[in-house]
Design a protein around this nucleic acid. Structure first.
Lengths: 341, 341
DNA sequence: ATGAAAGCGCTAACAC
DNA sequence: GTGTTAGCGCTTTCAT
């Protein structure tokens, strides 16, 4: 058998197979693949026909070695939080119009794992990263951002230059809630928030706390302001919440950092035969689907997760196409009014 | 400058950098990396020191071209369903002990997208795939399974040879629910289930329906058996559910295909001032966190999602290490008893 | 036990 | 406008 006719690798259809089948060079095929400059319409059609006929799909791994992978990575803190699906929906909506695909990874609220996964995504030669509420500090994020285009959702650091941020205005979200309660004539408002292992101002929850404190101050109720701390571990919180409501210093209203806990406050109130909102008013955060249940009926701050996702998607694509100046957006939250306040 | 001293690419630390730094060949480094046979302890240590010192991480893309990527793909139907986090937790738990990482993709309940994402993961040269409740048919899945080790969760096809399946026994889950209701003396039990665009026996929901029908028959109440169909689109269902409960033929009990709808049945009952369980008994499916709320208090079938996830993870790893005979597991569900039945 | 060298499938300079 | 070819960073024979 002469050297020229040596058979191509049996199984897989590669760019070579396509080139052979359509009688052109691999370079030509590569150009068609990438819509690159300098291919005649005739050639393009011929190649496209072969591609369709052979069912050829480029190897992302091989592409990643030299060019783009057309994949972006999305890192989620954890997966149980109800506002994540919306963000992903938003991201996907933007990507659907491009030829990019999203791959997700779940950090399980573990900083070590988070780093590992980001590294993984870089090692995969992904074209860009969207981090959702990462636990890592800004300096760490900046380090990674040097290696890959990056936009971060849920991390307040408007001075960052290496990466973009997309956030809901969490201070304002808290303020909206507090104002709504004041309008009902309620002044004794506490905030419910988890113990944070490493509290820094970039943290979404910290921002809500700051917003709460400021709003209380502005309303002249600074002395009433207090943050009720519950465990970081979600399983431990429901009983703690019951206990808080049994305390004789029980506040007249509770603003919760998340619906995740707000529903348990509603629950605890019911168990203790407290009327909502007459005995205790409650406002949650995230306007999740549970809040909408008639049995729960929870007023909640809506941070339009889908919008955050699509904004992040757009920004990442523009960064991938070359933008280097940082962009920082803040989306206005709103109060979704139900019966709990 | 002589040829031998030509500087390595400025930025990235590659296997070459490590080889140079430790004074061995790239082949040797590669072997250390993969714990391959034939490296002395001395060499290994020397190389490992360089790796640590330089902070070297192998390029997944380059690896994928010839060897393994040590990454497995997890495809989720959609992301909002509350039992998915548990499955992922289970998968991650198993992978954490290996050197594999999981990457997720979300199918958005769209068969076209689902195919595309599976292809993507194959193109990425991932080492294996876990599909969670895919919409694709068995034949399609088998086609993909020829190209990559695969295990499918939530797809009943115990005769499949190309891939493994891990399932909760959905027929039994329904039966458990029906029996529990019968024990309370209730015979007029309907099932609530969405309209399925393409109903086939592999479908988890279809299995629950079959289980329901069989259980009703076994209890001699076949004539009472009926399936109340609601829209496929989740947004349309709550009002439909209210309507169903207003109907004069309202059943004495409703077994729901998912907590997703069961909570709305509870809600509707409340709105219509029906007492649960005296006027209407309700049993859901998935034992999700909403079911546990005191305000909801929903009895629900638990399909131990975490177990399903870890079983799938184990099976995939064993398939990757060479197993070719198909394995099919069925996990027993159980009823988590609360106050709604 | 160790190393040299041939690819894996693709992209991008550079020739023609 | 089209083809040739040198890598990208790794794995894997095959010598030594």
């Amino acid at each position: 058998m002469s050297k020229e006719t040596k058979p191509l690798a049996a199984g897989r259809v590669t760019i070579k197979t396509v080139a052979a089948n359509s009688g052109v060079s691999v370079a030509a095929v590569s150009k068609v693949l990438r819509d690159a400059y300098g291919v005649s319409e005739t050639l393009r059609k011929k190649v496209q026909a072969s591609i369709d006929h052979l069912g050829y799909r480029p190897s992302v791994a091989a592409r990643g070695m030299r060019g783009q992978t057309f994949t972006i990575g999305v890192l989620l803190v954890e997966i149980a939080n109800p506002f994540l699906p919306l963000i992903i929906e938003g991201v996907n909506e933007v990507l659907a119009e491009s030829n990019y695909k999203a791959m997700l990874a779940v950090g399980q609220s573990d900083m070590k794992l988070e780093s590992k996964l980001i590294e993984s995504m870089i090692d995969y030669h992904m074209d860009g990263l969207i981090l959702v509420a990462p636990q890592l500090q800004g300096s760490q994020l900046a380090r990674f951002a040097k290696q890959i285009p990056m936009v971060v959702i849920g991390h307040h650091e408007a001075t960052a230059t290496a990466f973009d941020t997309v956030n809901s205005d969490d201070q304002e979200g808290a303020a909206v809630a507090i104002r709504a309660l004041f309008e009902k004539g309620i002044r004794d408002i506490a905030m419910l928030s988890p113990v944070l292992d490493d509290p820094h101002a970039a943290n979404v929850i910290t921002q809500r706390e700051i917003g709460y404190q400021k709003a209380m101050q502005k309303a002249g109720a600074a002395s009433r302001a207090r943050i009720l701390r519950v465990a970081y571990d979600a399983h431990l919180r429901p009983p703690e919440i019951v206990e808080l409501l049994q305390h004789r210093n029980r506040p007249r209203a509770i603003f919760c950092w998340s619906d995740l806990d707000a529903v348990h406050v509603v629950d605890a109130a019911m168990q203790l035969k407290l009327r909502v909102p007459q005995d205790i008013a409650i406002i949650g955060y995230d306007n999740s689907s549970v809040a909408a249940l008639a049995t729960v009926n929870l007023s909640s701050i809506d941070q339009s997760g889908k919008r955050l996702g699509s904004l992040a998607g757009e920004r990442l694509l523009s960064r991938i196409s070359g933008r280097t100046t940082a962009s920082h957006v803040l989306v206005e939250p709103s109060l979704f009014i139900r019966k709990s306040h």
